[in-house]
Amino acid sequence: MIKFQNVTKIYLENTIALEDLSFKINEKEFVSIVGKSGAGKTTLLKLLLAQEKPTRGRVFFDNQDVHKIRPEKLPELRRRIGSIFQDYKLLASKTCYENIAYVMEVLGKSNQEIEKDVPKILEIVGLTERAQNFPAELSAGERQRVAIARALIHRPDVILADEPTGNLDPYNTSEIIHLLLKINTLGTIVVLATHNKEIVNSLGKRVITLGQGKIIRDQEKGRFIL
């Protein structure tokens, strides 16, 4: 489903974010990407979302080279991926409800479906009361939960989660991880980039460890070892 083939990403001369990276992620897999800050986790997710271009190598999604997709066709790829960004990337001018509904509107879902699904996901992430608030009026943890709700709402084929629990308390953290696991059992690929040792160790799923832009370890049922 997802394939990185000899991917190298160099930002400026001497700043190598990723170096000759090759791996595959199969359907229904749950993969954690771990590594120190600056190990290249976020870059890896950005390459998959075609937010950045690799310096060398190719990235495939469903046998299609992501970076050969014409700009006007990119939205089709991105609609199949639900992204939870480290900096949330919420639309500041829209309320919580509208931020989540926007993804469904973009997909052309009917108003009835939107009115049915959005309150449901807001309840799951515990933000029913905050539906009409703007992102600036929310705490970091609440924003993170809106971002999660937005990534899940349209049942994408893949979820890319970049530090989704970074600002959450232990209770919310385990709730969100449960949610991601549940979605994964329904057939969605989950790619989780995280620092959180406890989460990774408790998952018992595949772990890819990055160090200085290279894959140090790639283990089925892996553990968080740097």
């Binding site: 990119l74 992204s83 639309l91």
Partner: peptide, 18 residues
């Protein structure tokens, strides 16, 4: 001023006309 919003809209899959 709305540059960031436009980029977010692109990232969540909105087409250019949207």
């Amino acid at each position: 001023k709305g540059q960031e919003e436009i980029q977010i809209q692109r990232l969540v899959g909105a087409s250019n006309w949207f």
